[in-house]
Amino acid sequence: MEIRQIAATERTDTMFPLQTYAFRPSPGADADRETYAQRMQYYRTAVSLIAEEGGRTLAGVGAFPMRQNVRDVVHDMAGVASVTTDPSARRRGFVRALVGRLLHEMHDRGCTVSALYPFRPSFYGRFGFVGLPRFRTATFAPEGLSGLLRADLPGEVERLAMREGFDDFDALTLRLLGERHGFSVFDEVRTAEFRESPARWVAIARVDGEVVGAVAYRIDDFGGDLVADDLLVTGPLGRALLLQFFARHVDQVARIVMKVGADDVPELWGTDLAVLTEGRVAFPNRGGPMARLLSMEALTGTATSATGAVTVEVADDEFIGGRYRLAGEGGRLIVEQCKDEPAATLTCSGISALAYGVLDPVEVVTRGFGQVDAAAIGPLTALFPRRMPYMFADF
Rank of each mutant, 00 (worst) to 15 (best):
G79A: 14
R67S: 05
R159L: 15
S48H: 14
S122A: 13
M40Q: 10
A81K: 03
G131Y: 09
L160C: 06
C111G: 01
R159H: 12
M162L: 15
A141D: 12
V83W: 07
L160M: 06
G128Y: 09
S48N: 15
R90N: 01
R96H: 10
R101T: 13
Y124V: 08
L153C: 10
D86V: 03
P121L: 13
R120K: 11
S146V: 15
T35E: 08
G60W: 01
Q38R: 03
P87M: 10
R33K: 07
A97V: 03
S82V: 14
A51D: 05
A31H: 04
V47M: 03
L132Q: 14
G62K: 06
A81R: 03
D76R: 15
F123S: 01
A171D: 12
R44K: 10
V83I: 13
G165R: 10
T45F: 02
R90I: 09
F94H: 05
H104Q: 09
A115I: 12
F140C: 11
F123A: 06
L98S: 04
R39D: 14
R44L: 12
Q68T: 12
D30K: 07
L132N: 02
R126K: 12
H75G: 03
A46T: 13
H75N: 06
D32A: 11
F127E: 09
R39P: 00
A115T: 10
A97L: 10
D170W: 15
R90M: 07
A29V: 10
L148V: 14
V130K: 00
P118V: 05
H107L: 05
A46P: 01
L153G: 00
D167S: 12
A138R: 03
T35G: 03
V83K: 04
E156S: 13
L132Y: 05
P87Y: 09
R120N: 09
F127N: 06
L116A: 04
A89E: 04
V113T: 07
T112A: 06
D30P: 09
D152C: 11
A138K: 08
A171G: 06
V61K: 00
R101K: 12
V80A: 03
A37K: 05
D76Y: 10
L172C: 00
S88F: 04
L149I: 14
M40P: 00
D76E: 15
E143K: 11
D152M: 13
T57W: 00
R101H: 08
G62S: 14
P65F: 11
L149N: 02
L149D: 08
R136N: 05
